[in-house]
Design a protein around this nucleic acid. Structure first.
Lengths: 222, 222
DNA sequence: CATATTCTCAGTAGTACTACCGAGATTTTC
DNA sequence: GAAAATCTCGGTAGTACTACTGAGAATATG
């Protein structure tokens, strides 16, 4: 419950924002957006990671809104540096990639949020307010990533398994030997073995050890 | 980038909030907090999960601010139900637990945020605004959890496995039969069998099928 | 230095799984 | 209504895994 002096609008006036992006056009666009809101104040602009770190030290903004890809020092490296030296500054990462891998890396680097560049003005303002007041913010598009895939998409079956095969696979993944699977499904052990053989062929695994992976991949567990 | 009609303050007036908590005291407290802000409107109060689901259907709030622990139907079950029937409603979970396990479960259940009950009024308002405008919000205290163990925390080993056992387990999880594991590690097949036996004992699984799960749990794969 | 742990390996036996073959019954598909 | 797919089950054989006991060597641990 240790909150690093979260920003409260009433206590300190406007939220001070430092922008970091190597494209002037993008910076201008963001600045134009944020200027419309009185609670936000853009206190500076950096064009690369190193500059962002230095300016953060001098300007002490509440929020650093920073692009991931920048010359000299990228957003992730800068975020790590800032976490170590200026932990009170909330870093909000701006990116064009909705790649799942990125999000994890960004949070690990110490960022407090991750938003995509196609975000609306309203959402961007909300995101800045969120991280300034001590929270974590993520664009809705990358939300499912937080859980680790499998959430929203019902998972396509790339193996073409039949209903019965999925039942057998589920039981196997739970660790049940053929005898128990047979009893549970009311069929012969030999039939279970048949299914097992077909399963291995379809998913391309040599033995039972890997069937768990597939079962999980198909979302048969939970 | 499919956003389920995110709330924009300018377009639809105040954010409509439905409260769900079995303690009247807590509801009163939240209501008192939110009433101070003109952009928020509490449209109803539910005292359990089932009621929350029903009221959500009728009142169609923008945000459902809901406790996890409630009688009849808890917050997680309610969240899952709402995701299926009312995906447009952003569920924000309120909890006293900062348990890492909970957060994942909550997001998997379809919630758009997780805040602790010791949160400040300012933060709570920000959180509601965040999820209403299409984002995900998490209290700062539970932020590190989002990364998912494996990174920041070196993953506690609840089974007390030795280094060698982890090596064997990793190979087994990849689907290698004992003979190959033995060859890879330069030891006898019998030794691998010993490790295998010890592994099953330590992690409590009957056969190889479940060892994959453990390997993954310990982050031995990636 | 005694003790404990880990890693190593073996014997024996039983159970489970894998790899083929074939085949009847039922349902779905064209 | 024929063809294809699915689900069912059996034989035979070989390989892999499980269970239990025992034990030597190297490495911590106290």
């Amino acid at each position: 419950m240790t909150s690093n002096s979260p920003h409260t609008a009433s206590s300190r006036g406007p939220i001070r924002v430092l922008l970091a992006d190597d494209h002037e056009l993008v910076r201008d666009g963001i600045r134009a957006r944020l200027q419309k809101v009185s609670e936000l104040e853009v206190v500076g602009e950096a064009t690369n990671g190193r500059e962002a770190v230095r300016m953060t030290r001098n300007l002490k903004p509440d929020v650093l809104l920073m692009d991931v890809s920048m010359p000299i020092m990228n957003g992730l490296e800068a975020a790590m540096e800032i976490r170590k030296t200026q932990p009170g500054v909330a870093v909000l990462i701006l990116s064009v990639y909705d790649n799942p891998e990125y999000v994890r890396g960004v949070v690990q680097a110490g960022a407090r949020g991750y938003i995509l560049k196609d975000i609306s003005a309203q959402e961007m303002i909300t995101a800045i307010t969120s991280v300034a007041s001590g929270g974590y913010f993520f664009s809705s598009a990358i939300g499912p990533t937080l859980v680790g895939a499998s959430a929203s998409a019902p998972v396509e079956d790339p193996y073409g398994l039949t209903e019965r095969e999925r039942q057998v696979l589920t039981a196997i993944a739970k660790g049940q030997p053929n005898k128990e699977v047979a009893a549970a499904l009311g069929i012969s052990v030999r039939t279970v073995e048949s299914h097992r053989l077909n399963l291995r062929e379809k998913v391309g695994s040599r033995n039972a050890a890997q069937l768990y992976r597939v079962a999980q991949e198909l979302g048969l567990l939970d």
